[in-house]
Design a protein around this nucleic acid. Structure first.
Length: 879
RNA sequence: GCGGAAGUGGCGGAAUUGGUAGACGCGCUGGACUAAGGAUCCAGUGCCCGUAAAAGGGCGUGGGGGUUCGACUCCCCCCUUCCGCACCA
C-alpha cells in the first residue's frame, strides 16, 4: 500500500526524522499486517472440543472497480465480531473467498480477448491487497474461488445430486432472451422489461433450459423461516416471493354446442371459491393451450391477432399497459358448475399463464381486476356478498353471502369451507395451494460459468457424468461471442462438445449451457469449513461442528435470491445426508447502504450559475454539482468557492456518474485503515442507510490520536504504575460492561461512544495508571486493531493483542455508594439530589425536600401521592 | 394499491423493561498554548421568554387525540420519507 507523507494531508504531519512518539498509521498498519500474516494469527483450527463461532461475509464478486465503502462496512462489522469472539474464547471461523464467475469478466473478454480467468485473477489480487490493507483477520488458508476447478467440481457434484433426486429437468420454456447480451436471463435479472445489468431490452422466446424444482421445497422454505433469526423485513420478502396462497381448483366444462362439439374442461384456480355463484365469465391466459380448441370460427382471426400481440409484447410493454384492460371473446361458453349458468370464455393478458392454472373464473362483483374488465367489455356483474356497492367498485371485503343458493347467509370464511366440501363431494374441484414461486431457470448461454456435468446422447437420453470424471473443466475458446442462435460460446468448440456416453460409449454431445452465477454462492459457506477435502464437499463431522453460520452479514440486494437459493440447496443437501442442519444461516444482518453527498447549484441555458435559493419557479435551469472537496465552508453552510453562493446538499446513492464515490484507498491514505473502520462503525447503526460525511473521519481519527497520546508521550510510555483509584475503576468497569454488551449486539456506534467517553474521562485525570489503559486497548483491538497492537507492544506486552482475552467487569464497581436521583413535582423535573444507594422512600423524600428548587414548587401545595422508583425517579403528586 | 422499516438540535445519531430527552461525534462560539495554527488542550452549544449578567420560567422527539404520577417509548387517527412487491386470481 502506497502511503504518502502527511505533507498535503490534514490528518497527521510528517517529519523526516522518525519521531517515535507520533501517531502514524502509515507506519504501524503495514507492520502489523505483516505480523499477522507471518504468524498466522487468525488461522482457524478445526474447532474440535471448543465452542465454535462461524461469522461470514457475503463474499464479493471481484470487479475491476475494487472494494467500495459498502464492502468495508460489512467486513469491518464481521471482523470486529470475529476478533471479539476470539477474545471471548471461541474458536472462530472467519473466511473470505471470491464469487468469481460472472458476466463482467466475460464482457471484458469479448471486448479485449483477454481470458476471463486472467481478468478475474488480477481483480482478486487487487481485492486481496485491499482487504489486507484494512487489517481484516481472515484465515487466508481457507480462501476459495468459485472459478477454481477444485471448487466447481463440487458445485457440479451437487448438481448431480439434484439430478439424482429428480430436482433438475430440461424444459422448453419461454425465457427472457436478451439480444444485446446474447443470453437468457432469470426473471430476477429482468427489471421492468430490461436487463438488470446494462438495461438492455428483453423479449420472450422459448428455449431448451435446465430448471430446478425449487417449488417442491416451497412449503419448507416458508415454514423454516420460523427457525432462523433474521430481520423481519427479510423474512417478509422471502414469504412474498414464495407467495403461498390457499384456494381451490374448480373445473368448468366447456359448452360443447358453443365450441364445435368439443368435450373439455377448463380448470381454474381461485382463492375465493365462495364467490363462485358470482362468476359471470371466464378468462384464459393468451398462451393457454385450450384457446386454439375452443375458439369459434368467427372469432378466430381476432383471437389470433390478440395472441400474437401478447406474445411479442415484452414484459415492459405488458406492465406499461396495465391501466387499460384488454381482451378478446373466444366465441365459446363454459358452464358454471354450481348453477349451470352459461358464461362466455375470453382471453386477456391480465391472466398470467404461469400462475395457478393459467385460467380464471371472473367475479367482477368482488375482484377489482375483473370489475374493471367487466366494465370495459360490458359484461354482467352480480353481487354475491353484501356490504358494498358493486355499481361503484368491486366489494372485496367480508360480508354475508347472497344470490348463492346453498351459501346464502354464510360469512365468507364459512362459505369457502362449505363450497369446497360441496365441490369435492361431486368431483368438481378441490382445495389447492398455489405459489408465486416458479421453478428456477438454471442455465445461461455463457462461457464463464460452471459446465453442466452431463452429456446428451443421440437417442435423447441425458446421462450424468460419473463422479470420478469431475470436474468437467471449461475448455479454452478462441472467441467469447455467443453463437448467435442463443447457444453459448462452448457450442463452437467441437472437440469439447463431441464426446461419448460414459455408460454406453455411444456418441454424445456435452451440454453447452453453463450454470448461473448463483450456483457457486449457493454452498460456498460449506466449503470454507473444509476447503481441502477431496472426498466430499464438506466433512460431515466438521459440518456438524460449525454449522449453521452464526452470523451472516451482507447487502440487502441479496435478501431474496441468493438467500433463497442457498436455503434451497442446503435443504436438498440435508435430505441427501450431506449436511446435518436444516438451515444454513442462523442469523442474517443486512448492512445499510452508505450514501454519497454532493452539493448542488443550477445553470441557465447560457451556462450562468444560479444559487439553489434563487430558482423559484424557473423551469429553464439544469442542475450542476460539485463534490465535497470543492466546497468552501462558511460556518455551517457550504459555499461554492468560485461563485460564492450557498450550495444545496444532496444525499444519494454513490455512483460514478454523480462523482460522489468515496474510495477506501484514499481514506486509508489520508487517515489510515483504523480510522476508516472506526468511522464506518461510528456513523450509525449497522443496518441503517446513512450518508458519508466527508468531515466525519477526522473525529474518529482524533479519538485514536487521543488514545495514542494516553500511552505514548515524547518521554516514552505515558502511563504510570500507580494504583487505579475507585473512581477510575467505576468508570472503567462501566465502560467494559457497555462495550461488551454493545459489541455482542452489534451496536458498534454506541460501543465506540462509550470508549470515547472513557478516554475523555481519563484526560481529566492527573496521571493515568496502566491498569486503566490496558483494558481500553484490549477493547479497542477489534475496532482499531493496528493501533491496539502497537500500543500493546509499547505498553511492554509481548505477542499479539488478538491473542489476549477480553477484559471482564466486576459488578462491585458498577455501583456507587450514592447516586443522583431525579426529583419531579407533578411529573416535571425540578431538581436532582444525591441519595445513598440503598435509600428508602422516606429518606429520599427528606433529602429531596431539603433541595430549595424542589421545595419551592411544593410550597402551598398538598402532597397527594409520592412515587419513588429507587435508582430512577422521585415524583411528588401535589396540588 | 399491498407489505416492511423509519421520522429526535444546524448535521450523523443516543436514550435496551414507560422514569433527568439530546450521550458520543461533526459543525459552531469562546479561551489557553504559540512565531503561527487548518495541530493540541479546556470550556460552552435544543428553541423561546427574561436579565447588564445571573436567577428564573415556558416550549420541545412528524401532526392530532388518548392511557399514566410520568410517554421519544404504550393505544387510536392522520401526514411524510425510504425499501421491497406489483394484474399472482
Amino acid at each position: 500500500m502506497d502511503y504518502t507523507s502527511g505533507e498535503e494531508s490534514s490528518g497527521f504531519s510528517y517529519t523526516p526524522e522518525s519521531d517515535m512518539s507520533e501517531f502514524r498509521p502509515s507506519e504501524i498498519e503495514p507492520k502489523w499486517q505483516q505480523y499477522w500474516e507471518e504468524n498466522k494469527t487468525f488461522k482457524t483450527g478445526d474447532g474440535e472440543g471448543k465452542e465454535t463461532f462461524y461469522v461470514l461475509d457475503m463474499f464479493p464478486y471481484p470487479s475491476g472497480a475494487g472494494l467500495h465503502v459498502g464492502h468495508v462496512e460489512g467486513y469491518t462489522a464481521t471482523d470486529i465480531i470475529a476478533r471479539f469472539k476470539k477474545a471471548r474464547g471461541f474458536e472462530v471461523l472467519h473466511p473470505m473467498g471470491w464469487d468469481a464467475f460472472g458476466l463482467p469478466a466475460e464482457q471484458y473478454a469479448l471486448k479485449t480477448g483477454t481470458h476471463p480467468a486472467v481478468t478475474t485473477n488480477k481483480n482478486i489480487e487487487t481485492f486481496t491487497s485491499q482487504l489486507k490493507a484494512l487489517g481484516f483477520g481472515y484465515d487466508w488458508d481457507r480462501e476459495i474461488a468459485t472459478t477454481d476447478p477444485e471448487y466447481y467440481k463440487w458445485t457440479q457434484w451437487i448438481f448431480l445430486k439434484l439430478l439424482e433426486r429428480d430436482l433438475a429437468y430440461i424444459a422448453e420454456v419461454p425465457v427472457n432472451w436478451c439480444p444485446a447480451l446474447g443470453t437468457v436471463l432469470a426473471n430476477e435479472e429482468v427489471i421492468e422489461g430490461r436487463s438488470e445489468r446494462g438495461g438492455h431490452p428483453v423479449v420472450r422466446k422459448p428455449m431448451r433450459q435446465w430448471m430446478l424444482k425449487i417449488t417442491e421445497y416451497a412449503d419448507r422454505l416458508l415454514e423454516d423461516l420460523e427457525l432462523i433469526d433474521w430481520p423481519e423485513h427479510l423474512k417478509e420478502m422471502q414469504r412474498n416471493w414464495i407467495g403461498r396462497s390457499v384456494g381451490a381448483e374448480v373445473d368448468f366444462a366447456v359448452d360443447p354446442e358453443s365450441a364445435g362439439g368439443l368435450d373439455a374442461k377448463i380448470r381454474v384456480f381461485t382463492t375465493r371459491p365462495d364467490t363462485l355463484f358470482g362468476a359471470t365469465y371466464m378468462v384464459l391466459a393468451p398462451e393457454h393451450p385450450l384457446v386454439d380448441e375452443v375458439v369459434s370460427d368467427d372469432q378466430r382471426a381476432a383471437v389470433e391477432a390478440y395472441r400474437e400481440a401478447a406474445a411479442t409484447k415484452s414484459e415492459l410493454q405488458r406492465t406499461e399497459l396495465q391501466k387499460e384492460k384488454t381482451g378478446v371473446f373466444t366465441g365459446a361458453f363454459a358452464i358454471n358448475p354450481v348453477n349451470g349458468e352459461r358464461v362466455p370464455i375470453w382471453i386477456a393478458d391480465y391472466v398470467l399463464y404461469g400462475y395457478g392454472t393459467g385460467a380464471i373464473m371472473a367475479v367482477p362483483g368482488h375482484d377489482d381486476r375483473d370489475w374493471e374488465f367487466a366494465n370495459t367489455f360490458d359484461l354482467p356483474i352480480v353481487e354475491v356478498i353484501s356490504g358494498g356497492d358493486i355499481t361503484e367498485a368491486a366489494h372485496t371485503g367480508d360480508g354475508t353471502l347472497v344470490n348463492s343458493e346453498i351459501l346464502d347467509g354464510l360469512s365468507v370464511a364459512e362459505a369457502k369451507k362449505k363450497i369446497v366440501e360441496w365441490l369435492e363431494e361431486r368431483g368438481l374441484g378441490k382445495k389447492t395451494v398455489s405459489y408465486k414461486l416458479r421453478d428456477w431457470l438454471f442455465s445461461r448461454q455463457r462461457y464463464w460459468g460452471e459446465p453442466f456435468p452431463v452429456v446428451h446422447r443421440e437417442d435423447g437420453a441425458v446421462v450424468p457424468l460419473p463422479e470420478e470424471q469431475l470436474p468437467l473443466t471449461l475448455p479454452e475458446v478462441e472467441r467469447y461471442e455467443p453463437s448467435g442462435t442463443g447457444e453459448s460460446p462452448l457450442a463452437t468448440i467441437t472437440e469439447w462438445v463431441e464426446t461419448t456416453c460414459p455408460e454406453t460409449g455411444a456418441p454424445a454431445r456435452r451440454e453447452t449451457n453453463t450454470m448461473p452465477q448463483w450456483a457457486g454462492s449457493c454452498w460456498y459457506y460449506l466449503r470454507f469449513i473444509d476447503p481441502e477435502n477431496e472426498d466430499a464437499p464438506v466433512d460431515l463431522e466438521k459440518e456438524r461442528r460449525w454449522m449453521p453460520v452464526d452470523l451472516y452479514v451482507g447487502g440487502a440486494e441479496h435478501a431474496v435470491l441468493h438467500l433463497l437459493y442457498a436455503r434451497f440447496w442446503h435443504k436438498v443437501l440435508y435430505d441427501a445426508g450431506v449436511v446435518t442442519t436444516k438451515e444454513p444461516f442462523q442469523r442474517v444482518v443486512n448492512q445499510g447502504m452508505i450514501l454519497g453527498v454532493t452539493y448542488q447549484y443550477f445553470r441557465t441555458p447560457e451556462g450562468d450559475p444560479v444559487c439553489f435559493r434563487d430558482v423559484g419557479d424557473r423551469q429553464d435551469l439544469s442542475p450542476a454539482t460539485v463534490t465535497a472537496d470543492q466546497v468552501v465552508w462558511k460556518g455551517e453552510k457550504p459555499y461554492h468557492g468560485e461563485y460564492e453562493f450557498e450550495l444545496e446538499e444532496i444525499v444519494e446513492k454513490m455512483s460514478k456518474s454523480r462523482g460522489n464515490v468515496i474510495n477506501p484507498d484514499d481514506v486509508i491514505q489520508e487517515y489510515g485503515a483504523d480510522s476508516l473502520r472506526l468511522y464506518e462503525m461510528f456513523m450509525g447503526p449497522l443496518e441503517q442507510t446513512k450518508p458519508w460525511d466527508p468531515r466525519g473521519v477526522s473525529g474518529v481519527h482524533r479519538f485514536l490520536s487521543r488514545v495514542w497520546r494516553l500511552v505514548v508521550t515524547d518521554e516514552g510510555v505515558g502511563v504510570t504504575d500507580g494504583e487505579v483509584t475507585d473512581e477510575v475503576n467505576r468508570q472503567l468497569h462501566r465502560t467494559i460492561q457497555k462495550v461488551t454488551d454493545d459489541t455482542e449486539e452489534l451496536r458498534f456506534n454506541t460501543a465506540i461512544a462509550a470508549m470515547m467517553e472513557y478516554v475523555n474521562f481519563l484526560y481529566k485525570e492527573d496521571d493515568v495508571p496502566r491498569g486503566a489503559v490496558e483494558p481500553l486497548v484490549l477493547m479497542l483491538a477489534p475496532y482499531a486493531p493496528h493501533t491496539a497492537e502497537e500500543l500493546w507492544e509499547r505498553l511492554g506486552q509481548s505477542g499479539s493483542v488478538a491473542d489476549e482475552p477480553w477484559p471482564t467487569y466486576d459488578e462491585k464497581w458498577l455501583k456507587d455508594e450514592t447516586y443522583e436521583l431525579a426529583v419531579q413535582v407533578m411529573g416535571k423535573l425540578r431538581g436532582t439530589v444525591v441519595v445513598p444507594e440503598d435509600a428508602a422512600q422516606e429518606q429520599a423524600v427528606q433529602i429531596a425536600r431539603a433541595n430549595p428548587d424542589v421545595e419551592r414548587h411544593l410550597t402551598g401545595k398538598t402532597i397527594r401521592k409520592v412515587i419513588f422508583v429507587p435508582g430512577r425517579i422521585l415524583n411528588f403528586v401535589a396540588n
